[in-house]
Design a protein around this nucleic acid. Structure first.
Lengths: 105, 105
DNA sequence: TAAACATTTGGTTATTATGCCAAATATGCA
DNA sequence: TGCATATTTGGCATAATAACCAAATGTTTA
């Protein structure tokens, strides 16, 4: 397959991993401190299996990493720049707001 | 609805708009110069309607903007930081590679 | 070993995304 | 006006996601 296309798909894969409200929440939560799955589950307020799967997606994308401690699995953020990242997303949101203003007048 | 949740969904929406290989390609192509839809269609190699819809998604996300010039519509990148953004994605991909190395040993 | 706790995996279902074709909507020009 | 070009929109088939429940796996302790 086209190597350029492979690269695009790899990049898109990383972004896809981030492109979910719960997963963004998890990334932000893990930016401060590592947390175990049950803690994160309480914070998120969804089924444990759901949270576990979201964590798995982030992990496979290379964004977070896990470490087993006894019965628990602690996850931590692996890519600090994923946060700057979100600053840019904020800039986009401001543009969206600007756009809406323009439409209204 | 929870305002925090709304914020997360807005952010996720922007990332979702970027999380597609064709749309990433379009963003990169538009980073250099504005292009019209038919040019982009040639570059992408998909149906015009498909490309048009991808552009529409990027536009709704606030990432690009359009300007009509005669029969053509020119799109341009609206958020320069969307590119830095991709630098971070590259960092993630390097982590993925590191991970694979670790697995192999 | 059995029980209790923590996490992951499998399965099902509902929703959403994607890509193409065909048709509709501009726009410019003969 | 009628035609060609450029783009968008609607519709449809297919594929990918997401959430929950139930069951399986792994770990500690009685």
């Amino acid at each position: 397959m086209n190597p350029h296309k492979i690269r695009l798909e790899a990049r898109a894969g990383v972004l896809k991993a981030l492109a979910h409200p719960t997963r963004l929440f998890l990334v932000e939560a893990l930016a401060d401190t590592p947390h175990c799955v049950s803690d994160l589950t309480k914070m998120v307020g969804a089924d444990t299996s759901t949270v576990s799967k979201h964590l798995s997606i982030l992990k496979n994308a290379g964004l977070i990493q896990d470490e087993k401690q006894g019965k628990q699995v602690f996850y931590r953020l692996r890519i600090p720049c994923a946060l700057n990242f979100l600053d840019c997303v904020e800039a986009v949101l401001r543009e969206q707001a600007r756009e809406r203003m323009a439409v209204v007048g």
